[in-house]
Design a protein around this nucleic acid. Structure first.
Lengths: 160, 160
DNA sequence: GAGGTAGGTCTCTTTAGGGAACCTTCTCGG
DNA sequence: CCGAGAAGGTTCCCTAAAGAGACCTACCTC
């Protein structure tokens, strides 16, 4: 994300987590994405709803657009006005947000309960996301897998 | 995250994404978690494998332990030696990592292909994660849901 | 007793976030 | 036609963290 999240760039690492972090890992970026998803799509709206500094918001939006997650589109010619919209790449990133919501609801929700609910169009019910295996469709979590080096593996993990 | 990721604390927001970010949103934290998951669990191993500064690593580990994601355990009495292990809370956070891997593989992988693969114990096959609805078990993504205010909603979203 | 390992702490410099003022273009009301 | 206000940023200054690396304290081995 960012052009850097801090100082160290993660984008060059042979790690999909690091490269994903390079796109949305900077502070505020996931929250910006969330707000765009729910229809808060203009600069001033975003700035006010998040309480983020305008400078940082400019940087984050620029980075997200540069990385193809958001699209900046002019919705008025005169006066010139812009809004931000999710690309397909950005919509798929929202999977990440849904998983964050799930974890946050389970482990950090206050007494008040979850702040948002999802109604699934296909079944019409209020549900949340679960991770399933793409091959067998059954639930999949980190305790039920082996992690193996893939074709793009750069280094073998050594224990020292 | 962090004790602050930057300056603004996200933990107080009525948003599960923000509260999740408060736990693992700081730079490096997801990568630390990933490494602990694959068996890199000691301070020096982590520091060398990530190339993170020792100071920041100390801070991040302390934050993750304080938030119940990792557990610091002494594996040798004399000399005193420690290692870090995932708690159940931390294991569930790894769902997030798997989704990051999935997105990174799809959208940012180089020619070399994905650096890691998952073999699912239940089916024995190499697969990846997909998001399914907890109610009907069918695939669920952000384009197939309505987002509704839940019991913990603090503010209504206004468009201005 | 020299050297190495593990697990940190401390100090210093550099970078990036926060806050707020400022700027430009356009519209509206009077 | 003048002033106010909205939208979308840009610029500046200040402070808080990240990065680099030296240093410290056991303890073990040779």
């Amino acid at each position: 994300m960012m052009d850097r999240m801090q100082r160290t760039r993660f984008g060059d690492m042979a790690c999909s987590i690091a490269r994903t972090l390079d796109v949305i890992g900077e502070p505020w970026s996931p929250l910006i994405l969330r707000n765009v998803l729910v229809g808060i799509v203009r600069f001033d709206q975003l700035q006010r709803s998040l309480g983020i500094s305008r400078k940082v918001l400019t940087e984050r939006l620029g980075h997200l657009v540069a990385n193809g997650v958001l699209e900046r589109r002019r919705y008025s010619e005169r006066p010139p006005r812009y809004e931000y919209a999710l690309t397909v790449k950005g919509e798929e990133l929202c999977d990440l947000l849904m998983v964050m919501v799930r974890w946050g609801d389970r482990w950090t929700a206050g007494e008040a309960g979850p702040p948002v609910l999802y109604r699934h169009h296909e079944c019409g019910e209020i549900g949340h996301v679960e991770l399933h295996c793409s091959v067998c469709d059954r639930p999949m979590d980190v305790t039920g897998i082996d992690i193996l080096p893939g074709p793009g593996a750069a280094v073998t993990v050594t224990q020292g």
